[in-house]
């Protein structure tokens, strides 16, 4: 796969002396959906801002489609659309004017047909003559996306696009992202909703305290770190795990009424069958059972915990 963004040894120290990015190296592939995950204050917005030219890097370089973002900023910025985290809009402009303004700002000749398409795609067409201040929060979010798409970018940054957005709009947004990807746009989104990354991303990067701690295919990441748990709801509670079962990775929970077995789902032998046989042998009976795949959230929590 071809690289479209190449971030190398990128560092950012704010004038306050706070180092928000520490020697970040990251490659984004052409046409992928890349999710940047991290807790609040991890440096996601700083990283995006630096790539987009809003923040000056202290050190390191960023290349977009082979061009340096500083030396050749016109070439790189023309390729990029940015949807910021904050709902920053003008109040008095109309929807149509502000989207047309963005297109012009990015050096593209007026193209009403394209603006119309973008507004329709984002269900803003019937609001085109409205002043921005009359829009709801969700509409403003979509308007920011429309502005970012007005100049037909090849790369789209979405900084927490679904923060504070209702469920329906979230679904719409995800669909839009998929449609964009299908049309060849590379998408980088930040989120702290794990399910969003799990749902959307091809690859996932985790950033914490200004450092990228892992970058992996989503499926690979889940496989590598993904554990499965089998929970047996027992008929009679156990005081402790019987010695005969000491070889299994078992835990008791719920005052001894739940027996939890953690295993690697990818392994040939999961060990479930012998466990069940051994349980019968020692006379432990269960009334129900349940298995659970660890989510990205669990993985993420354990990653962040390990580093800090």
């Amino acid at each position: 796969m071809q690289t479209i963004i190449s971030i190398s040894k990128l560092s950012k120290t704010y004038s306050s002396g706070f180092q928000a990015l520490k020697n970040v190296n990251l490659e984004i592939r052409r046409g992928e959906i890349f999710a940047l995950l991290g807790p609040n204050g991890a440096g996601k917005t700083t990283l995006i801002g630096t790539v987009c030219g809003i923040i000056r890097p202290t050190d390191g370089t960023v290349n977009i489609d082979g061009h340096d973002i500083i030396a050749d900023y016109r070439a790189t910025r023309s390729l990029v659309g940015l949807v910021p985290q904050e709902l920053t809009t003008d109040a008095f402009e109309s929807v149509w004017n502000t989207v047309s303004f963005s297109r012009g700002l990015f050096g593209k000749a007026p193209n009403p047909a394209h603006i119309e398409k973008v507004l329709k795609d984002l269900s803003l067409w019937n609001k085109k003559d409205n002043k921005i201040m009359t829009l709801s929060g969700g509409m403003k979010r979509r308007l920011l996306i429309a502005k970012a798409l007005s100049h037909e970018p090849k790369i789209l940054f979405l900084d927490e696009p679904t923060a504070g957005v209702d469920v329906e709009l979230r679904r719409d947004m995800w669909n839009l992202v998929r449609v964009l990807r299908a049309s060849g746009v590379t998408i980088i989104l930040t989120t702290h909703y794990i399910d969003e990354a799990e749902e959307m991303a091809d690859r996932i990067g985790v950033i914490n305290k200004g450092e990228i701690i892992v970058v992996e295919e989503k499926i690979e990441l889940m496989r590598k770190l993904g554990k499965k748990q089998l929970t047996l709801h027992l008929q009679d509670s156990l005081g402790r795990i019987p010695d005969a079962l000491a070889n299994y990775q078992l835990e008791l929970a719920n005052q001894g009424t739940d027996l939890i077995y953690t295993y690697d789902a990818q392994r040939e032998k999961t060990g479930i069958e012998p466990l069940l046989q051994d349980l019968t042998k020692v006379g432990v009976k269960f009334k129900d059972l349940q298995t659970k795949q660890s989510s990205l959230e669990d993985i993420f929590v354990s990653l962040v915990r390990n580093v800090s």
């Binding site: 801002g49 987009c52 030219g53 809003i54 900023y73 016109r74 070439a75 910025r77 023309s78 990029v80 940015l82 910021p84 904050e86 920053t88 809009t89 003008d90 963005s102 700002l105 990015f106 050096g107 502005k147």
Partner: peptide, 14 residues
């Protein structure tokens, strides 16, 4: 003040 300057700064303008 409003933050809309982000767009100007990220645009290919000198």
């Amino acid at each position: 003040f409003t933050g809309t300057i982000y767009e100007l700064l990220s645009a290919p303008v000198s």
